[in-house]
Amino acid sequence: MSSATHPAAAPATSGAGSNAMILFAVAAVAVLLVAPFGVYPVFLMKVMCFALFACAFNLLLGYTGLLSFGHAMFFGGSAYICAHTTKVLGFTPELALLAGVAFSAVLGLLAGLLAIRRQGIYFAMVTLALAQMFFFFCLQAKFTGGEDGLQAVPRRPLFGVIDISQDIHLYYFVLAIFLFGFFVIYRTIHSPFGQVLKAIRENEPRAISLGYRANQYKLLAFVLSAALAGLAGSTKVLVFQLASLTDVAWQMSGEVVLMTLVGGMGTVLGPVVGAAVIVTMQNYLAGLGEWVLVIQGVIFVLAVSLFRRGFVGEVIAVWQQMKARKANS
């Protein structure tokens, strides 16, 4: 992908900047710790699940330049495994989560091996087609419950001892998972590995000529993204006690693209903001039925036509402009 795609590449963190970052992170975690006393916890958990999903997706689109149109297969596939192992095999939540993540990582490896053989637009079409194949598999397979999905998945005690049947207790577990996932992604982006991914995004032939095996890097990023999307999907099962075909349908893949686009692709916080905006919108507009689809489409068109940098990307751009002006005066 060309550099024009990523006007909002994350700014380099200087000394003063990283202090501000740490302050911001501490404040954000503090807000999240007290938030369930003011806001409905299930809603917050839903936002965190989708925020993690979008962050995982952004690792691929924003930092590696690969548009996957099939991420629902990792999200939903992992959800099915988590629900099945909990409900039928009697796994405790942490084991069910691990099983779900392991499944989506393996699925990501298989899909990634095929998909990275093509680039750009073909990559998007291949991932979309593979996800649709997985959708039909889930529709016909016995263990997924077909059209009904897996309902009323029990919330077993965590590690066999900690009770999470209350929403408020579960909230802190989901928050821990979200922060863990977010931290993994943050560290990945700011590691030497992440730098190579960005190099591949900006100019793949050049990265190859510098001696980097671009395909191996892309594959690893794909598997990591799939595994984290799976973590989000499995966590969603704990919250809603449900895994269904909605989670693996192509509309879900589209939704995560929309969240990332609206929030700002290639920014650390963009997907979180995007997920919060879209989930909030869906909650308020749930009564409007088919209009939700239309409104999502309109947001897509507006975002692509008018603010390609997304919310967070635009804020960063304005902030950098102000800084540049201050430096000049």
Binding site: G120, V294, F300, V301
Partner: peptide, 24 residues
Amino acid sequence: HLDHLYGLLLTFGLALILEGLFRR
């Protein structure tokens, strides 16, 4: 003048709008 992916995203949004309108 932009990356090809934006065309894909725009037409995806248009597809959602059209399908939603007809479904409604």
